[in-house]
């Protein structure tokens, strides 16, 4: 709930004031209804759904499932969310030189309509929180592609105090694209691999995430100190 250190505030007004502002946001509120009834509102319960997520089984008919997997592979919608320095490598994919639209890859500005999430480089703990929220809001089946050595073992940020070192401890990764930074050609290769996995029915990491939710949540909560959101962000 409390930021460790806020550089936007002067020394005198840190800690206490920041604490007050944030505390006010997440405290229980007493609300009086139009008919005079008084009830208590818990902001987290009020803003978010606390329903349990569930894993989805593939369609039992193998021919149908194969056909659907083909459609999913040929229509990959990527969330426009650049994290770290790799965000700069995603832009050129839309230019005449690389043009990945011809492979059925398109960008969406909202997580609700995206299927693939590119974690493009290092994730600071602050960004990890946003990445988790975005990932959990995406509809299943969903895929994660991780770029660069930072997502594999920390890379250049291996001794950083506020950067996560191994992404797959926090979010399930389908495809890694190694390099520092991988060029757009490598990204296209990564997409090819992802499409291959989807067509083979092996890109079911969204279900793995739900089945091992407790393990992932323990890892996430270990690094994210200001956890002011529900356990699963619908």
């Amino acid at each position: 709930m409390l930021e460790e250190k806020n550089i936007n505030r002067t020394e005198e007004e840190t800690e206490e004031q920041t604490g007050k502002v944030l505390k006010h946001c997440w405290e229980d509120r007493v609300v009086k209804g139009p008919d005079g009834q008084v009830f208590i509102v818990d902001p987290i319960q009020d803003y978010f759904s606390d329903a349990e997520p569930k894993a989805y089984d593939p369609v039992s008919n193998k021919i149908v499932e194969k056909f659907l997997n083909w459609a999913r592979a040929e229509s990959v919608w990527v969330l426009g969310f650049g994290t770290g320095c790799g965000g700069i490598e995603i832009g050129p994919l839309r230019t005449p030189r690389f043009d990945v639209f011809r492979f059925g890859i398109q960008w969406r500005p909202t997580p609700r309509q995206s299927n693939a999430f590119i974690i493009s480089g290092y994730l600071s703990v602050k960004t990890l929180k946003r990445a988790i929220r975005s990932y959990e809001q995406m509809p299943s089946p969903k895929y994660i592609m991780a770029l660069g050595s930072c997502t594999i073992n920390g890379g250049t940020y291996h001794d950083s105090y506020n950067t996560i070192k191994r992404l797959d401890q926090y979010l399930p990764v389908d495809v890694y694209v190694a390099g520092c930074m991988p060029r757009p050609e490598a990204l296209i290769k990564g997409f090819e691999k992802l499409k291959e996995l989807i067509k083979e029915g092996k890109a079911e990491k969204a279900n793995d995430y739900i089945n091992n939710l407790k393990w992932y949540k323990t890892n996430q909560k270990r690094v994210i100190k200001d956890w002011n959101m529900p356990d699963y962000n619908w």
Partner: peptide, 15 residues
């Protein structure tokens, strides 16, 4: 650019 394939909207819809 080359652009999307001509059958892309139907696949998007199915997906």
């Amino acid at each position: 650019r080359y652009g999307v394939r001509w059958f892309q909207p139907w696949i998007d819809l199915l997906k």
